[in-house]
Write a protein that binds this DNA or RNA. Structure first.
Lengths: 346, 346
DNA sequence: CTGTTAGCGCATTCAC
DNA sequence: GTGAATGCGCTAACAG
């Protein structure tokens, strides 16, 4: 390992060694104006020799252009999985295309004090919010701030908020119609813990209500259970559901760990999927859906699109604070993995 | 929503409004020298009126003190779960105590090009690496750089690397001794996918070898399977193991999703835990261990300690580049959740 | 094609 | 107790 030089080389060091002026070095770097091949060559040699690394934060200070944004990814009860990574990577890729770095910030949604520190320290030029609540304290706080931000997800009153979100109002009907077309008339919904619903978590609230509305229209009965996000809770939930409502022919899931338990319990009871019970699962990634036995048919948002568009929205707002508020809804995508079939005859 | 002021207020604006000099405002903020109550009062009023927010990145530039570090958390095949969050939160808490913000960076371990961009853009003052490989290209690259970094985990040749790591050499013996004391002489090891092992992932490599060595000493036979990280793979693995080696009385796991499958398959076969088969699981979080039916006895690293110490190490290196290289090993912790018992009589 | 100059927002040394 | 001056590393006019 080479011994560490005492301090990092600066543009001035490079300029001196190359025998040119400071700004020439800058321009050689950015290519913002023509440089003769010869001086460019000298500059590059000097940079290499000094191990010169431009200091992006100083550049950002001087140019007043955005260089660093954060994605607020509150890793709450459920953690981060590969499906979330689709968002994250898409957003980050989009940022890098624009020469902006994106880092993740993982504090709890409710930790407004930490958010305040992040913002008031002026460490980032913009923020993307995820896991929006219907009433979201972060949004309230950030609107009192000059920091540009957009959301993946939305609040109840979101007129003033730029966001992209999955069109959850279409999720429920998509599931109901699919199952109803297959002849199912009595189904179970294994949803998320009641705290999550009560805290006003948009996806669940919107999906549940669109599902119930459409079920009513199609004459379908829905028995809902709010299960904790673990395997055991899923087993217990489905055991009880099937005991109390033997007419159930399909389970709609919105809770990945619990649905593992549901599948376990069905297998333990000797019920086959999809011959005896059909399964549809909201919002999980292909990886999660393929992981279980059997694989699950899913209805979800289009992977990276949300992240990509969100970053584009943020960049627009950072570049031009007067750019219009945007609301974008991404339609759901259903992937059939064979876990649904015609309803068992009653 | 209030209309947005044209630009953010600066220290100069505050100084002008308060009728004091720029530096006085700085000192009022930092408290680095005595300020009369009266001027402090005026300054505070001015700050409030202007909605002044200090600009941390400019401050960092001027003071040459670190203000932003990144935690490289490669979210690979397995994602991030709550157990990882212990590290993340502990590190981040420690950073904030020192007035430093920590953000996460989630690119793939192998994406050195992206790492190079992160570093050469000079966006962060330091870096914590996670998920170290035995030969880790990131370490190689970063040592050619002036950027301070430390690791949670270690490489094969880690003399020059400051790290904290779990003492995996103690994991294997802890599991072997525990089971051997209970009379188990033939056990299964459901480990991670062979690519992971071949890529030289330290925890697995070290744990496996310490386990095998100790098993030999204690006269224990270990049948190892490298299962993919999903439920189905775990089911298949244990089914085959028990068929080929009916003498197996315990399963040692190092693969959370696969072990869910193992438990499912044992239940499906009517084998009870721990009466028929004992279970010990390496490296999963309490949350994961409690989630399954039955809960699993675990041997893991002490949650937040790794993150906390890693950040402390990094801060030391950033503050004083000449500080000594440190190697710290954290002893394993076993939590008995009742999934192990005396070996079934053969 | 290249150099000079004046900042970006702040910390800090040196004065008073 | 307070102010003025200098510089962190870089960008971006303004000058040739």
């Amino acid at each position: 390992m080479s011994s560490q030089p005492p301090r990092r080389a600066t543009r001035a060091d490079v300029a001196r060694l190359a025998g040119v002026s400071d700004s020439t070095v800058s321009y050689a770097l950015t290519g913002d104006r023509p440089i003769s091949d010869e001086t460019r060559e000298r500059i590059e040699r000097a940079m290499a020799e000094l191990g010169y690394v431009p200091h992006a934060r100083a550049a950002a200070l001087a140019s007043k252009k955005p260089s660093l944004v954060a994605l607020h990814f509150p890793v709450g009860e459920r953690g981060i999985d590969i499906s979330d990574l689709n968002y994250v990577n898409a957003a980050s890729d989009r940022a890098e295309e624009e020469g902006i770095q994106m880092l993740m910030w993982t504090h709890d949604v409710t930790d407004i004090e930490a958010l305040r520190r992040l913002v008031t320290q002026g460490l980032v030029d913009g923020l993307i919010l995820m896991e929006l609540r219907q009433d979201d304290a972060r949004v309230e706080y950030l609107t009192t701030t000059r920091l540009p931000f957009v959301a993946i997800g939305r609040t109840r009153e979101s007129e003033e908020l730029s966001y992209i979100d999955a069109d959850f109002d279409a999720w429920g009907p998509m599931a109901v119609n699919h199952l109803s077309d297959l002849g199912h008339v009595e189904v179970a919904l294994v949803s998320q813990p009641s705290e999550v619903v009560e805290s006003g978590y948009g996806p669940v609230v919107l999906t549940e209500s669109s599902l119930n509305a459409q079920a009513k229209r199609r004459g379908m009965t829905v028995h809902q259970v709010n299960a904790r996000a673990n395997i055991r809770a899923g087993r217990e939930a489905v055991e009880q559901l099937l005991r109390q409502h033997p007419g159930i022919t399909a389970v709609i899931g919105f809770n990945a760990p619990a649905m593992i338990g549901v599948l376990e319990e069905l297998a333990a009871q000797g019920r086959r999927v999809p011959e005896d019970v059909s399964i549809v699962h909201f919002g999980i990634s292909p990886e999660q859906a393929e992981m279980t036995v059997p694989a699950q048919t899913t209805i979800s948002a289009p992977g990276g699109e949300l992240g990509d568009v969100a970053m584009a929205l943020l960049i627009e707002r950072m570049t031009n604070p007067d750019s219009p508020i945007r609301h974008i809804l991404a339609p759901p995508v259903m992937v059939d993995r064979g876990s649904t079939g015609p309803a068992r005859r009653r």
